[in-house]
Each structure stands twice: as structure tokens, then as C-alpha cells.
Amino acid sequence: MAENVVIEINNLAKYFPITSGLFFKKKVAEVKAVDGVSFAIHRGETLGLVGESGCGKTTVGKCVLQLYRATSGEVIFEGKNLCDLNENQLRPLRRKLQVVFQDPYDSLNPRFTAADIIGEPLQINSDIRGSDFDRRIAELLDIVGLAPYMADRYPHEFSGGQRQRLGVARALALQPEFIVCDEPLSALDVSIQAQIINLLDDLQDKFGIAYLFISHDLSVVRHMSDRVGVMYLGKMMELSERDEIYKSPLHPYTQALLSAVPIPDPAVEEKRKVIVLKGEVPSPINPPSGCVFHPRCPKAFDDCSKLIPQLKDAGSGHEVACLLYKTSWP
């Protein structure tokens, strides 16, 4: 199992400083966007990362790709800790780590043609030029289901779904081993989402790419992922096999999250009991003591505000960080 690991994240933390002062910026507080998150992703596997906005899932993705430099922790890829490398040392590794963004309107340069966009990674990282270059562009367009004649079109001439296909083609250009998909569907319409889901699925089957699939949509994450991590306020609350976590969620937050997702079937909905959480996600500048979820938790007890639960295996690889389970006690 261990030799199959593509990327390993250990105790990752990212604090954004809040500064003030006119000439000399002084740090006055910190936003603990990610606070001690660990996981590993295996070859050809999808790890889904779910959570509400502000839970730090996107920050995790950016730290993994070294687009943000982590405050502490490790990102191990090919035996190297990426956090220790400088930009020049990272460059040769970057081609193996790619990203698909949320907003296909924002992620494509409006002055580039489709061929420029897909070919950019090749221009930067390879010496493929001329007819080989054109052939590779055509091939990539074909892989993501676009026609070759679209190569000289500009992003504004494509629909949202087609633009996202271009984003996927760009990520594929250098045959990466690992792609971070950062909410790749949330800007798309329902009927188009399924097209992109299928595309990502097929590419994984074909090329054995590992995905870190970041999304707030629990149904989509279930469909895409082999394993799922649930984040809340910068912490990993639960991490397990997909079926395990969806059939028997252990953390009260996961339970509430799952029950909040409406199912598109009126007959099912009529019989469902919804757990409505009280309050809102607290500020990450000043997170609650103990378990960060305790102020909203329907099952919280005294110790929850005092002790910080540890993410530990509660049986058969199902990791959870909640004091309801003996294993999580510090």
C-alpha cells in the first residue's frame, strides 16, 4: 500500500497573518485556514475533500500545489518534501502536479486561443513544437471531447462546459500523476456537470491519475471519490472509505451535513428527518476552544469545549476526530 502513495500530506498548517500599520506591517492576528491536516493519496485514487466555505479545503489544495507556502507541515511527493524546495527546485516537479479550477471563465486567459491555452504547459515545460505540438493539441482536444477545428477559437466562443473541458485538457497536457480539482463543477449547470464528471472518471480509468477532488457538493463527492475527508474550520473531522462514511457517518458534523443535502425525490424527502444545525461557522481568526465544532454540535457535552479531539482510527480504517469515540481522546 505504502509504495502506491502518490502524495502524502503530514500535519499541514496554513495561517494567514492579518497585518495593520501604515509603514511597518505588524501582525495583529492570524487566520488559521488549515490547522494540522494529514492524508495520503494513492495511485489512481480519488480523495474527496468536502466542507463548507471557509473550512480550508481550497487552501489545502493550494498548499499541496505549493501555490501557497504552508506555515508548517510536509507535502511529500516523489520522496521530497515540497515545502522545503524553492521555486527553481519545484519547477521540474510542477509538471506532474496539475490543477483544474472552479470558474472556467476566470481560469482561461481571454486573449489566448484554445490551442494557446492547452499548449501553454508544453511551451513552458517541454520542447515539443511545430507539427508535433499541433498533433498533441488535436489529441488533447479529442481526449476531452472537443473538435480539432476549435483549436483557434477564443474562450468567449465556448460555453461553460466546453471551457471546463479546455481546463481539463490543459491539466492533462503534461501527463500528470496527480490533479487537484478545486470545485470543478460548481460553476456549471446540472446537465453539464454530469458531462464533466464522466470525463474526469474516464480520464482516471485511462491514465491512472490520482485526484484530490475538492467540493462542497456531497452527492458529487460520493460519486467521484474512493475515500472522503470532511473538513470543518481548518481541521479534518472525519476521513474514511466512501461507502463507510456515507453509510455510517460517525462525526455529528458529517451526519448533519449529509442530512442537510436534499435528495431529488419528493417521496424520500417526505420521510426524511433533517438535522438543522444551529448558528453559523465561527470565525477562523478566533476559533472555539476544544473541538471547533462544539458550539453547533447537537451532541456536545462538557469536555468538548476543553479537549481537542484527535483524528484517530475508530475501527476498520474509519478515522474520526470526535470525543464521542474513545479513540479520539487525547
Binding site: V190, S191, Q193, A194, I197, N198, D201, L218, S219, V220, R222, H223, R242, D243, Y246, L258, V261, I263, P264, D265, V268
Partner: peptide
């Protein structure tokens, strides 16, 4: 075209 939480996971949408 939408995946459902309450149904067995389909291979493809």
C-alpha cells in the same frame, strides 16, 4: 444526470 446520496453509486452518470 445528478448523483443521488440515497441510491447505490452508479458507474457512470
Amino acid at each position: 444526470s445528478v448523483p443521488r446520496l440515497d441510491e447505490p453509486r452508479k458507474g457512470r452518470l
